[in-house]
Design a protein around this nucleic acid. Structure first.
Lengths: 238, 238
DNA sequence: GGTTTGCAGGTTGTCCGACAATCATACTAA
DNA sequence: TTAGTATGATTGTCGGACAACCTGCAAACC
């Protein structure tokens, strides 16, 4: 059809690229806590960009809690780096990062299922049912289907009554969704939807019954199968 | 002593204040997802500041994942707010938030213990031993002791070989440490140190033995007891 | 009529130079 | 010695300018 052009790499903005360099330097330990950064003027000459760009880069690092600026003094790497959870949101995720994220997700989903069984409200069951209908209706495991899939899990997180589960699981899901979508395209969709729906239904019923242990078991099973589907070899302990 | 002076209001930087205003507008729903913000030029006149300040404010909002900017088009409130994990780092945590955070921590710690059992390296055991020594040596459960306690758990997280556990558990620990310190002051310290040390030692031995199931059991026990110590009633399922 | 191309206007991104606000330090004077 | 001051350095803010980029419309072409 068309010649195989390579896609133009749309370079990120200057401040973001410079901020990334500093982040690396700090994480590698080249820049240690308490160290003073060169002055903005110096940096602008070092990088060959204007002070405006340097300032935006530093502002970004400050927002992320990595450095601190004091007017008239300078910018310093923060002593105790504020624990900030950073899920690198590059669209590209290597296999290792995905595996690690999934490894983190599993215990949280299981615990959420157990908590949801005891804490859920009728509205949650309704939302879960609706998501299930959407999944089977579309018959499309990769498009709207996966949105419904995520909604299903998000509802479980909400049903825990603990907003942290919603936040954490939501953030993790956002990062692994791309990889899941990609993997599903390689599998027979109709068969897949049936299997997943069955797993979800069991999960829903267990939660509806208020049986925490059964809900946890169902979620554990679902996670194991889900991991298999994306061809992962996870070290996963019951 | 001194007259009741009111504390000097050290006005935050202009960009931060402006960004805060936008955050409010978005959270109150005045600015809805998809809405286009006024142009930087317009905003600079509206707020009476330079475009530089407006740009930094917008950059901050963009870093926080609330808005998105497109060159030549404008700035827009993000459709689906990027899942951003925000652990409000107010020093004050109410009982409910603490309970929820602890609820989130439990499954992660247990999973981490299991993974650490299979993935740990000699250096990790060494660090854990060192932390144990520091805990018993000080005899102070609230001061250096708790630092050693956290180091112990951090080492387990590191031993998983999965950096996400380090990040997530680290962030959670930072938030709950104050409450734990406060609670420990009400308990007999010497007896407490002995008990905690015993639990930690069992944990260490299980990990050293490479026995994932035993490590998970030990951590679960440790978490249960820990929760009891801070007088929580957690809905916690095996 | 439908499609493509070129143009114009608007918006964000980057650059530059300048001044204000603030801080650390060295110096001066009592 | 100590308090106060002067000075230089550095970040914060400002205003203007141009570049890069996007959208929409109009003209040109088939």
């Amino acid at each position: 059809m068309s010649a195989d052009f390579t896609q133009i790499i749309r370079s990120e903005h200057l401040p973001a690229r410079i901020a990334a360099q500093f982040t690396q330097q700090i994480q590698k330990g080249v820049l240690k806590p308490g160290d003073k950064l060169p002055t903005e003027h110096t940096l602008s000459k070092t990088f060959g960009v204007s002070r405006t760009v340097i300032r935006e880069a530093i502002a970004q690092l400050r927002n992320e809690g990595m450095i601190e600026t004091r007017q008239g003094v300078g910018a310093f790497v923060i002593d105790r780096p504020t624990r900030h959870i950073r899920l690198d949101d590059g669209v590209q995720m290597d296999k290792e990062a995905f595996r690690h994220l999934f490894q983190l997700r599993i215990p949280l989903e299981i615990e959420a299922a157990g908590l949801a069984a005891t804490n859920h409200r009728p509205a949650h069951l309704q939302q879960m049912d609706e998501a299930l209908v959407r999944m089977t209706a579309t018959g499309d495991g990769a498009g709207d289907g996966i949105v419904a899939d995520l909604d299903f899990h998000r509802t479980i997180a909400a049903a825990t009554g603990n907003d942290y589960f919603v936040q954490f699981l939501g953030a993790i899901s956002d990062r692994i969704i791309h990889t899941i979508v990609a993997s599903r395209k390689r599998i027979s969709l109709h068969a897949l939807v049936a299997v997943i729906t069955q797993e979800h239904t069991e999960l829903r019923d267990a939660i509806a019954a208020g049986d925490a242990i059964r809900a946890r078991t169902a979620m554990r099973h679902h996670m194991e199968k889900s991991a298999e589907r994306v061809a992962l070899e996870l070290e996963f302990h019951s």
